[in-house]
Design a protein around this nucleic acid. Structure first.
Lengths: 208, 208
DNA sequence: CGACTGATGTATACACTGTGAACAACCTGC
DNA sequence: GCAGGTTGTTCACAGTGTATACATCAGTCG
């Protein structure tokens, strides 16, 4: 909240706005993101934001991109907990399970960021990207390819498998955050998620 | 648009508002529902709505309930197309598939109503209900019970199976309406939905 | 040093939203 | 025919996003 120089200019309003928006979304949901609300949190006049973003939509898109990065990093971190020593078959299925659990737990621990990550997936207008993690979608494709290579999933089942997985995982998150699973405790929700992931894996890897 | 008597009072503003709101949601999405917008469509002053609904939220809840009924009826109609002569095992799985396809196709043909049906599942404050169809959730439970009775699904897998199904189906709809499947044609989306449902059924019914 | 210049934050204004309060027209029962 | 409740209108207010004009800073060039 403190300005780099006590004077008029803020210093780096842009990042301050993004950070304030992230806080706001985490605490009150993605729907609470408003131009006046965010600028108020930073302690600056509403129209100051227009020096750094074309409009509210552009701000939200930028913040959403950051949320997607955090989701991706959460997934990657979780994938890295799977011991590399396992045999490829077991390892790849465990990685699929870890992917799903990371997705759902990200949604349930920070619903506002999850909402942001899903809503308006477009890239913000200012395109430059550096240390961006691979998007969750690509991570999933990689895991499914591992599974086919390892022989746990028949190549015939590979077609469209990403959408089966994505549906299950995204559906779970959605039910948890906006749907009838809202009331559940974290552990119960995770238990249900594990069951759904078991069914999914069973369906992907079943013989015949 | 024409009033029952040329005079002041509208006659049955309440149903007119609900109908206008349904039209608006179908054409421009659930997010486009605004108090002024709806009353404008009916040709009445904004505050007239307050004689029939406590606030905008109450109106939306009422319209959302109607949308849920239409979803339920779409599902039931589709279930009834499954020939009753089939053997119970085959029939119950076909009914599960029909459930999923009906859900997804409702979402893709009338996304605005689908949004309404999902968002804010609470019942509207004015509680009276008469010819209401059973909610989709109960329909699904019934189908799963049929499947276990018919022996296609092991009783051990029955626990939490509704959430596996619901996740897949709701996830598909969500990806279709708000997610990366938006761009697809109707047929392509249905093909992917069939694949995902195959995987789901495979997972629910696999031996061992 | 001092003035010019671009970047950045402010002030004012406007159209829009949901909603409360006071008012007016209508319908119904006595 | 008139009292009283119901229903729709009007006016008002706080809130929103955003366009325009202005003020103030941080440099750079003479």
């Amino acid at each position: 909240m403190k300005r780099t120089s006590p004077g008029y200019h803020h210093g780096n309003l842009r990042s301050a706005l993004i950070e304030a928006a992230l806080d706001l979304a985490r605490d009150k949901g993605a729907g609470a993101l408003g131009l006046r609300e965010v600028t108020r949190a930073v302690g600056v006049s509403p129209n100051a934001a227009y020096r750094h973003f074309a409009d509210l939509r552009a701000l939200v898109l930028t913040v959403a991109l950051e949320a997607r990065h955090r989701l991706a990093r959460a997934i990657i971190d979780r994938l890295d907990t799977i011991a590399p020593g396992l045999d490829p078959a077991r390892r790849s299925t465990e990685r699929l399970r870890a992917f799903g659990l990371a997705y759902v737990e990200f949604a349930q621990s920070t619903p506002g960021w999850y909402e942001l990550a899903c809503a308006s997936q477009e890239a913000p207008p200012d395109g430059v990207e550096e240390g961006a993690p691979p998007p969750p979608h690509l991570i999933l494709l990689g895991i499914l390819d591992e599974m086919t290579r390892a022989g746990v999933m028949a190549p015939a089942r590979r077609t469209g498998a990403e959408w089966s997985c994505w549906s299950t995982v995204h559906g779970l998150a959605e039910l948890r955050v906006h749907g009838p699973l809202q009331a559940l405790s974290g552990e119960e929700a995770v238990r249900l998620a594990r069951l759904a992931l078991d069914t999914l894996i069973q369906g992907l890897t079943a013989k015949s």
